[in-house]
Each structure stands twice: as C-alpha cells, then as structure tokens.
Design a protein around this nucleic acid. Structure first.
Length: 973
RNA sequence: AGUCGGUUAGCUCAGUUGGUUAGAGCGCUACGUUGACAUCGUAGAGGUCGCUAGUUCGAAUCUAGUACCGACUACCA
C-alpha cells in the first residue's frame, strides 16, 4: 500500500474493474431489491442534489447487494422536454444565428438527437465518478423506442378509459416558449404593482344606490378589460344587488356586458364589483361558467393584443353573437404596452378613479422567466380525480410510506385538491401525442395512422393529420418504474423488480413526479394471478425517502445566477481558483453578474478547492442526511471526512505493517485473545447492529456517525494502541498482558497471544471495511484487497462479500467494563500530566489506594496496557494501613490513582485543581440530594430511576469526600 | 390568510417511546514530531436547548400560546 492516502490513484481503477466484471447487475438470486433512479436530464450535468441522492441510493444498493439480495439499480435519463429543446435552440441561435423554425420540426429534432449523442454521456460518466453501482447494461432513455411505446400505450389506454380528454380551456401559457405549462411549472413571485380603479358606465341611465351613473371595478391587469364579458357583484350586497341583470357599457370597446350576481365578489374587498374576463383569468373563468358569460380572447400566443378578438361559449364552441372588434389603437400591441395605453385612455376619458400601489403575486414561467398568461387554447387533459383516489389510499394504508413521515401531509393536501392535468405541450421534443384529425375536426386516438384508418374504417383518401403537440415530460417519467422494465409486455424483469423498494428524491418534486408516478403506476400495474391479491393495483415503490435540499454555506439555494454552485466533481478532484472563477462566470444568462460572482468566489475559495476524493464527498453527504428540509453545505465537514479517510488509510497501514508476512491465524493455530481483543470484538458487534438498524431506518447520518465513532474513537484511538504492547512484547523485562507478569514467558505462549492480536487486528479491520463499503466504496475495496488474505477471506471483490451481521454471543460485557476502567485510569493519568505540565514522555510512578478486589484483578490483567499507554515506570497498590506519599490524585470509581508529587508537582496547582473538582462534585451532590429529598419524586418515580439517582449520589458523595481529604492533606503540607 | 418545517456550543448539525452531568465535527485554548497518521496526538474551555405558560415527581423532548426565519398552497377583483 502507498504510504499516503491518495484517493485519485485508487478510485478510477476500481470502478473500471467493477463495471467490467459485471458486478453491478442483479445477481439473479436472493430476494429482489430494486431502486429506480429518478432520471436526470440527459444533457444535464451532475449537481450537488444529484450527488446527494445518488450517494444515498448507492449506499442502499450496495448494502442490499452485500446482504445477498437480487439487487437492481435501474438507471436512465430523461429527455426533459422544454429544458433540452431550449438548450439546443440557444446553441443553434448562438452558433448559426438560426431559430428552430429555420430548421423545421424534423431537422430540428435531429439536431437535438445529435446534441444528445454528444453530451448525453456526460452525466452518466459523472455518476460513475461518484461510484454509483448501477446496472448500466439496462440503462434506459425516456425517448428510447421501447419506452416511447409504453408512453404511447398509456396515453391510448387512458383515452379509452375516458381519463384523457381534449378541450379548449384556460391554461397557463408561456408567451415566450409558446407552450402551455402546468401550474406546477409556474413560479409565483411577489411584485410591486398597481391597482387601477376603473369606472364602467351603467347602461340605460341606471344609477347606483349612491346615485352614480357608473360602477367602479379594480384590477391589476387593465389590459384584460378588452375581454370583459361581465361585472360581478355579490348578490347580498345592498349597494349593487338591484343592478344585477342590468348592463354596463364596456369602455373603449362599447360592448354591453351584464352585471351578474356571484359569491365570488366579496363585499369587503376592493369596490365590491369585479370585472369578469373568463378568457384571461382562472377565477373569472369559473364565474363565467356559473353565470353563462361568453369567453372573449384578446391575446395572441405571443401575449400581444389581437387584431380581432375571438369569442367562445363556455363549452368552447364558437360564439358568433359577441362583437369581437378591438379598438384599432391597441391592435398588435405588446401586452404591457397595451396596459399603459389603456390606462392612459381611461384617464383621458375621466374613467380612471384612482391608482393604488399594490403588492401582488405575479406568475412567472420557471423556464422562460416571463410572465405567464392564462390563455384559452386547445389542450389535452388527464382527469386526475379517479386516479388520485387509490393513490391517496395507498399512502393512507401504508402501502407507500414517506420518510420522513411529515411529507405525507404535503402529499395528501395536494392530492385531495387535485386539478386536472394539462399534459399537452407545444414543443417539438418529446413524445408526440398519438392523435389524428381529419378535415372535419374529428379526433382519432390510436397507435399509428394505419390503426386509425383501420379502427375507424376511414378510406385511404381521407386526409389525416397527427396532433403536433408532445406530452408533458412528467407524463412519461410517471411511468418510470414499470416502463423501464419492459411494460406493456409482462416481462420476467417486471415481475421480479416491480414494485421497486424505495424512491429517493427531493420534496420539491413530490407533486410533479412522485404523486403522478403513484397515480399512473397504480392504474396500469396490477398484481397478477400468482400474487396474494390478484388484480389489485401495484404501487411503484414501498418507501419514498425524501431528502433535504443542499444549499450553500449561507443557506442560499445554489444557482448559476448567484454563482454559488458547487460542482461535486470539484470536491472530488479539486480545482484551482482561476478555473473555478472561469467556470462560474462563463456561459451566463446574465453576464452583468459576473463581476460580483468573481469577487465572491475569490473570497470564499482563495485557495481554490483541494481534492478530497469521492469517498470523503460521499461520507460527508451521508453525515448530512438528517431529516431536515435544508442542508447547508460546509466545506469544513468535507475536510473532516477526508481526514477520516486518511485516518482509515493509516490505520490499515499500521495493521499491514504488523500483519503482513506474519502469522495472523488465517491458517488456524492456537490463539489467545487479550482483554483488548475481546473488547474490540464486542464493540464491533454493537456497531454492526447499530449501523444495520440505521440503514434500514434510512438514517444514514446516524449510521455514518456510528461508524466514524467506532473506527476513530475505538478502533484507532484505543484498540490499535492496546495492540502495541502485545505485539512489541519480547517477554523479557516488562510485565506482560493478561496477568502474565513473569519475565521469560514461553515463546509459544507469546506467539499464541500475538497471533490472537494480529488475527483480531486484521479481522476487525476486514469487518470494518465491509461495513463501511456502502458508504465509501473505493478506499474500502482497496484496503480489503490488501487485508483479505491475512483475514483468510475469499472473494474477488468487497462489493459482493457479505455485509457484517452482529453476533450477540460475542458481546462481552465484562471486557467492555474492564476497558472502560482502563480508559478511565489512563485518562486520569493523562489529565494529571496535562494539568501539571508533565511531559508525556516522562515515566511516572503510580500508587493505588482504596482499591477493591475487582480493581486489583483488573490491574493484574492489564498492567502492561497501563504501563504502555499511560507511560508508567512503576505501578503498585497500597496495602491497608500503609502510608502514601503526597500525591496528585485521580479517581477511578472508588479507587484513588496517586502520582507522587515529589519533584514533579506544583502544590498550588494541585490544590487549585482539587478545589475545582470538589466544587463540581459539591454541585452534583446538591442536585442529587435535592431530587432525592423531594417526597413527590421518591413517591412517584419508578424504583429503577430512584435507585439510579441514589447510586449517582453515593458516587458523587464519596468522590467529593476523597477529593476533600486529599485537598486537606496537601494544604497541611 | 392557511398548512408544514426550523430555532440546541462561535459555525454546521445530532438528540429515538419525557428519566444524562444535553452530544458530534469544525473552530478556539494549552501542550506535544514516543516506531499508523501533524490530513495527527493529549488535555481543556464553551450551551439557563427562541420566549412564556401549562401537564408531570421530572420537559430540549408532551400541550397551548408567542416571536423570528423558511418552504409550499391560496388570495389579492
């Protein structure tokens, strides 16, 4: 093994070996266990969120594989409709100054396929760097033929089940991208705006209760008034109820529109009168439906004012009664310009009552960043209510469990108020909707045009045109767990690996994806006749492990525009400052931010980022994987875990130094286990049980903490140190371990003991490597390969070796207590050294007072350990009645450990130290006494608790008494 | 406005069914190159667990209220 830990040197080669040997594929035997990777954008690159979630998945996968399960990690990528199309559009614009329309649909989608071929491997290469042990042989892409067919099939079946319909409905329209988007893709942002109060004159000389010949409506979007088809007032409102059924004359367009009564109008709010624009506002649309108002669309797909409006009845049919003339001056005007112009005209006409400042939520497209317009268009929808019902039940009855549980609330609240899902997108990149139209406007849904003709007996000369739209990306990714396994064929793979076991994802896509996956899967996947409940729906996964979101060190979301994005690969490989600055400021959507970002980056990473290795990155991610919703990234944690890797490396180095070419008992031979050996073996069982439980409970943060603590603070800090006096024992001068105090112990006895210690060193390390492998795959494989012959272990790779299982019979409470005693003893001596400024290399004489038989036994058994670790020159117990010299004192239980002061110890310092101790103990005694003298406590608390308190009081009292005695004695000097 | 989450050491975070002297890492202080490791070791300092009230023998933990921060949903004519 190399002397220093160098992660870069081991990571690449091991991954290659694993992959080439096909060890990532399901073994074909054992209980099936599967995870479907949330498919990342095929042309994307790995960010911290991916790294986080994929590390978690890989740990679960590796753990289950080592447990002998038939383990599948299904991976693949998503075509990511809008995102990918936009990237290629921008690229074509920048490189060729062309738009997609210059190319045309077919040529442009070819262009996207080219881009996919070029950059599509990027993210999977990055996943490999992370150590992801995914089954690459069966990697899928959502636009692959097989998956494409599954998507099409789902559309057709839903249509046949009457769960998909097409209609002219109000949708969120992105005027820049020219597509409908779902309400989840809309980001509402708070903006400062205005509330314009407009006067609408009453028709036919009517007057309000106050005698005015107009009513006042308030609006934040005055331009929509061109499409008003009514004014609503509350039917209970005494001010206006008499006007219901009367008309107002819509200014500028001079259209008579009715005043209707509807509870949507709130008497308390605004003026109490609401202009109703059913074609441009979701609430108004509802009012329109209730009151039978027509819909007048005044906007183009660009969000400009139309030359002539379009009128529809509420059922979407064309309305020829409404005058659709738009005043000439506004025609073709951009929407925000039109807003200004319309307000100006109202003002001139004396119809502008007032303008208030107003804070409002404005909808923005999360991709385009432009203001979304509710717009009337023909779209396809999924009826979600019937699908939602079983999906809600599955979570209610525990077939699907969210971890942490509180996310179930989020799921329920959305599912119980679910809206129909607009699934058509006006894009070119995606799954084309399998619907055809004839010239009469009839719709036919089928797999192919030929099937349409056949099913509907259409003659060959009937002209058919396929729908131009594609499906929402989430529609296809909703089929991910079963579409990847060969559905609609009933494949062996589907039978084996569906339902998957756990979905690991962020809470931000519970609505987008998780909920829809559950609905889609439960509708299409039914248990077959071989199952316990044939015909019942199958869930896509049994657990949803919801992770937090990784933020930067200040708690800000990482984003390119903020320039605070950390690339997981930079943490692994390191990056110099200049490259980091270039990376963060290059290729920006808003170049004006570059300077600020550069400054920030230079400040935060003055030295660039050092390489830390994959194992350290992964371990850091696990340690942060608690139940919280936000995770603030901390480079210091990463450094700490790199040091941890280094610690492991060096510990292995020590073990190898002492075990290589030595007899480690791998070929049998008698062994003697020292107390230290028994202790570490016992502790190993405990940590094995803890780690396994925590993994099963999805608490990887706890599991990683258990391991860290055991490896660093038990194995390295104590056990390796305790192994030294055994291995260095030449049987000559020093007292030996295990009560073997005589010099000249036989070679055979020594060999037996050393063999035991070497065997323990090696075996425990080997078990640690297997235990840690799911978390830090590379360093564990590297060390395991070195150690396995010494441990007498067979196997080509640690990946498929057995995960350690705790053996209760090896838990040795006696050994644990003895070592705790030993630790207390040694720490006591070290404390005296530190407080008295006695160097660690100065050997000390130590005398024991008030030692029990148990203390003496322990002393007998462990003197070699004590002498070695506490650096003692002599160790003796005081007989009854024997006088002790003046000493510094430490307590180990009731036993006093004395270090004679002569020539070493400062009287004042020792007095000060003892005083502090006494003071501390006095407080404790007081607290316990208080508790125990409280009748209510003694009366009501369980006996065991009282006993515990009593014991603590006794200990504190006796410790205090001893310290006081000692203090007095020194004072008297 | 509603729902949910957070508030614990200087920083980043744990704390399982109420029973500890409230923990870890980083940082800090002092000392230290003894034969795995200075990416280290040893010893230490540091917290009235946001606030208030309650339940209880006992509350970081349960209840109610409250403050601040955050997310989401809705409303905003």
């Amino acid at each position: 093994m190399e002397k220093t830990y160098n992660p870069g040197a081991i990571e690449g080669t091991w991954y290659k070996t694993w992959e080439e040997n096909g060890w990532f594929a399901p073994s074909g035997s054992g209980k099936p266990y599967s995870i479907a990777l949330p498919p990342p954008n095929v042309t994307g690159s790995l960010h911290m969120g991916h790294a986080f979630q994929q590390s978690i998945m890989d740990a679960l996968i590796r753990y289950n594989r080592m447990k002998g399960n038939n383990t599948l990690w299904q991976v693949g990528t998503d075509h990511a409709g809008i995102a990918t199309q936009m990237v290629v559009e921008r690229k074509v614009q920048a490189e060729e100054n062309k738009t997609r329309h210059d190319y045309g649909r077919e040529a442009f989608t070819d262009k996207i396929w080219e881009w996919k071929a070029e950059s599509g491997g990027n993210i999977t290469r990055q996943m490999r760097r992370l150590g992801a042990s995914a089954d690459w042989d069966t990697e899928r892409f959502t636009m692959d033929d097989g998956f494409y067919k599954a998507v099409q099939e789902v559309f057709i079946r839903l249509y046949e089940d009457d769960l998909i319909y097409r209609g002219k409905r109000l949708v969120n329209w992105d005027p820049k991208l020219h597509t409908a988007i779902s309400d989840l893709e809309v980001e509402n942002k708070e903006k400062q705006g205005n509330m314009w109060h407009l006067r609408y004159p009453l028709a036919d000389g009517e007057k309000t209760g106050e005698g005015k010949d107009y009513i006042v409506v308030a609006t934040t979007r005055p331009e929509t008034m061109l499409g008003d088809t009514g004014v609503a007032v509350n039917p209970e409102d005494p001010r206006y109820k008499d006007l219901i059924g009367k008309d107002v004359v819509l200014p500028l367009v001079n259209r008579r529109i009715p005043i209707v009564g509807d509870e949507h109008a709130d008497m308390e709010k605004g003026t109490g009168c609401v202009k109703i624009t059913p074609a441009h506002d979701f609430n108004d649309n509802e009012v329109g439906k209730r009151c039978g108002l027509p819909m007048v669309n005044i906007m183009t797909l660009n969000g400009d004012i139309r030359d002539q409006a379009e009128a529809f009845n509420i059922d979407g049919s064309v309305n020829n009664d409404v005058d659709t003339t738009i005043p000439e001056q506004f025609r073709g005007m951009e929407r925000f310009a039109a807003r200004k112009a319309i307000v100006a005209v109202f003002d001139e006409a004396g119809l502008l009552e007032k303008i208030d400042d107003h804070t409002l939520m404005v909808p923005y497209g999360d991709r385009s960043g432009v203001v979304i317009e509710p717009l009337l268009t023909d779209q396809w929808f999924v009826k979600t209510a019937p699908l939602a019902e079983p999906a809600i039940k599955a979570v209610e009855n525990g077939d699907i469990q969210f971890v942490p549980k509180q996310y179930e609330n989020m799921y329920f609240s959305w599912m119980r108020d679910i809206q129909d899902w607009c699934i058509s997108r006006q894009l070119w990149w995606g799954h084309r909707i399998p619907a055809w139209y004839d010239n009469e406007g009839n719709v036919y849904v089928a797999r192919t045009e030929a099937e349409v003709r056949e099913k509907n007996s259409l003659a060959a000369d009937v002209e058919l045109r396929q729908d131009d739209d594609v499906l929402d990306t989430w529609f296809s990714s909703g089929l991910w767990t079963f579409g990847t396994q060969g559905w609609p064929e009933n494949t062996e793979r589907l039978n084996t690996f569906h339902p998957t076991d756990v979905l690991v994802t962020g809470f931000d896509i519970i609505f987008f994806w998780v909920a829809r996956m559950i609905m889609m899967t439960m509708h299409f996947m039914k248990n077959d006749s071989s199952s316990e409940n044939p015909g019942t729906p199958q869930v896509p996964f049994k657990y949803v492990y919801v992770t937090g979101l990784i933020r930067d060190e200040n708690g800000d979301k990482m984003s390119k525009s903020k320039g605070n994005v950390l690339d997981p690969l930079d943490m692994i490989d390191g990056i110099d400052l200049e490259s980091l600055v270039t990376k963060r400021t290059g290729n920006m959507m808003q170049p004006q931010l570059a300077q600020k970002i550069e400054k920030r980056t230079r400040k935060a990473f003055a030295e660039g980022i050092a390489p830390h290795g994959t194992d350290a990155l992964r371990y850091t991610l696990y340690s942060l994987a608690s139940t919280g919703r936000d995770i603030n990234w901390d480079m210091k944690r990463l450094e700490g875990y790199r040091n941890f890797c280094n610690k492991i490396w060096n510990a292995a180095n020590y073990v190898l130094m002492n075990a290589e070419d030595q007899d480690c008992g791998q070929n049998g031979g008698e062994v003697e286990l020292t107390l230290a050996d028994k202790w570490i073996i016992s502790k190993l069982q405990r940590v094995e049980a803890q780690v396994a439980k925590n993994i099963e409970d999805f608490r990887l943060d706890h599991a990683s903490q258990n391991l860290y603590d055991f490896i660093w603070n038990e194995y390295c800090a104590w056990y390796l140190e305790l192994s030294k006096p055994v291995l260095w024992d030449d049987g000559q001068d020093s007292p030996s371990v295990a009560g073997d105090r005589t010099s000249g112990v036989t070679d055979e006895a020594l060999a037996k003991r050393k063999r035991g210690t070497r065997r323990t060193l090696v075996r425990v390390l080997e078990a640690i490597m297997r235990m840690a492998h799911p978390f830090m795959p590379f360093i564990t494989e590297e060390i395991w390969q070195q150690i396995k012959p010494l441990a007498g272990v067979e196997g080509e790779t640690i990946m498929t070796s057995a995960y350690p299982v705790a053996d209760e019979s090896k838990i040795d409470a006696q050994a644990e207590d003895d070592i705790e005693w030993l630790k207390g003893f040694i720490t006591g001596i070290r404390n005296i050294r530190a407080e008295m400024n006695i160097g660690p290399s100065k050997p000390l004489d130590v005398i024991l007072r008030n030692s029990s038989a148990e203390d003496l036994r322990r002393l007998e058994d462990n003197s070699a350990f004590l002498i070695s670790l506490a650096k003692l020159s002599n160790l003796s117990a005081l007989k009854d009645g024997e006088e002790a010299p003046m000493s510094a004192t430490q307590l180990v239980g009731d036993m006093e450990v004395l270090v004679p002061m002569a020539g070493l110890i400062d009287k004042d310092k020792e007095m000060a130290r003892l005083s502090r101790e006494v003071e501390k103990l006095a407080k404790e005694v007081a607290r316990f006494e208080g508790k125990l003298s409280n009748e209510k406590f003694v009366g009501k608390a369980p006996a065991a608790v009282i006993e515990k308190e009593k014991a603590k009081l006794e200990d504190a009292r006796s410790a205090k008494a001893r310290m006081e005695e000692q203090l007095e004695a020194i004072k008297a000097l």
